[in-house]
């Protein structure tokens, strides 16, 4: 019949209106229950899955509570327990990064020898695709995903190319953003540390017994080591000769 479609459509709109009105009549509407009021009209809303009526969130005054796993731009962790950065400049994050938006300079000591610390660490936020691989494959829990998604700025460079200073956050910040994962990680790290300590102790114990034995035998240890190095060198030379001969 002509016009029923129109009436049905209006009916849906009206039902929405009534649902929202009913919700608004409560002292705290359902969509605000469980939300975090930050004052000055700022609210962080955790909408229940059975919310009816109005679902709109009035950004920017109201924001959605982001789930823990929300990922945006990576951040580097400053370990407040040991008071040093966790990053060892191993470069795995730069290797797995699909758009190759991470670049790292390894630090060097006074003698110019590379050390396991980053001198500089850059992430180009305009290229980053928030894929989480750097976090997933970091063996040192040194890089994690930040929740801060409001990065707009007028210039791309240098504002959106973050350096180490801008990327680094204290461990507590990460612990607050990712509570569940942080707890799991701490447990695992503690376990790993305990294992490492046990291994170290065992090794130390073995070393002392060995040292005692060696003293008893009075073997010329340094010389034996040297001859071993000599032997390796000889073998390498031999291989090189063979290769050259094969190449003709």
């Amino acid at each position: 019949m002509f016009g029923t479609g129109l009436l049905k459509g209006l009916g849906v709109t009206f039902k929405h209106l009534v649902d929202t009105y009913k919700d608004d009549m409560q002292s705290t509407p359902a969509r605000y229950q469980g939300s975090d009021d930050r004052g000055k009209g700022l609210k962080v809303i955790d909408q229940p899955v059975d919310q009816e009526g109005l679902l709109t969130i009035q950004y920017p005054e109201e924001r959605r509570l982001l789930p823990e796993r929300f990922r945006y731009i990576p951040m580097l962790i400053w370990d407040t327990e040991t008071d040093e950065e966790r990053c060892t400049a191993c470069g795995i994050c730069a290797k797995v990064c699909p758009p190759q938006c991470i670049w790292i300079t390894r630090a060097t000591d006074e003698a110019g020898k590379p050390v396991t610390r980053p001198q500089d660490f850059f992430i180009d936020a305009t290229i980053c695709m928030s894929c989480n691989y750097c976090v997933e494959f970091c063996p040192f829990d040194a890089i994690k995903m930040d929740h801060d998604a409001e990065l707009a700025s007028f210039e791309r460079f240098p504002h959106l190319v973050y350096d180490k200073g801008e990327l680094t956050v204290p461990l507590d910040y990460y612990a607050a953003l990712w509570p569940t994962q942080y707890a799991e990680e701490q447990e695992r790290r503690a376990q790993e540390a305990a294992e490492a300590r046990a291994k170290e102790e065992a090794k130390a114990a073995r070393a002392t017994t060995k040292a005692v034995k060696k003293e008893e035998e009075e073997a010329p240890a340094p010389e034996a080591k040297l001859s071993r190095a000599e032997e390796l060198k000889q073998k390498a030379m031999e291989r090189a000769r063979q290769r050259r001969a094969a190449q003709g």
Binding site: G91, K95, V96, Q100, I104, T105, R106, P114, F122, F157
Partner: peptide, 15 residues
Amino acid sequence: QKPFRSRHPRADFAR
């Protein structure tokens, strides 16, 4: 092929 060599360990990467 990725990974590009300019990213690590000496970032001589130019935009």
